[in-house]
Amino acid sequence: MNSVSPYVLLSALLFTIGVVGVLTRRNAILIFMSIELMLNSANLAFVAFAHQWGQLDGQMFVFFVMAVAAAEVAVGLALIVTIFRSKKSTNVDDLSQLKG
């Protein structure tokens, strides 16, 4: 045990909860939020490792992950809005056809 191991364990737990959320929720927005939770737990692990090794690079990764997450959310939510317009639903089980 060292000072950052609890953080890493917590990160793993949160990641798993996020995975289960992605797989069990049917609302596209909630699936999206679960993905954000997974990203966030990964960020936590990065920061913990950065602390352990006394290096800043881990924190830089978190910075970039946040930027990518922001971009992803913008496009993803736009997609959800577009799909909702045509399907009148955010339920991913309704989206089982390639044909719009």
Binding site: F15, T16, V19, Q52
Partner: peptide, 27 residues
């Protein structure tokens, strides 16, 4: 499957990570 994943992560954590020491210097 989530539980399995967690167990795997915990296994890795216990066998590989917990022994490595923390860096002495603060950043």
């Amino acid at each position: 499957l989530g539980a399995l994943l967690l167990i795997q992560a915990g296994y890795v954590f216990i066998t590989h990570f917990s022994q490595s020491p923390a860096s002495p210097k603060a950043i």
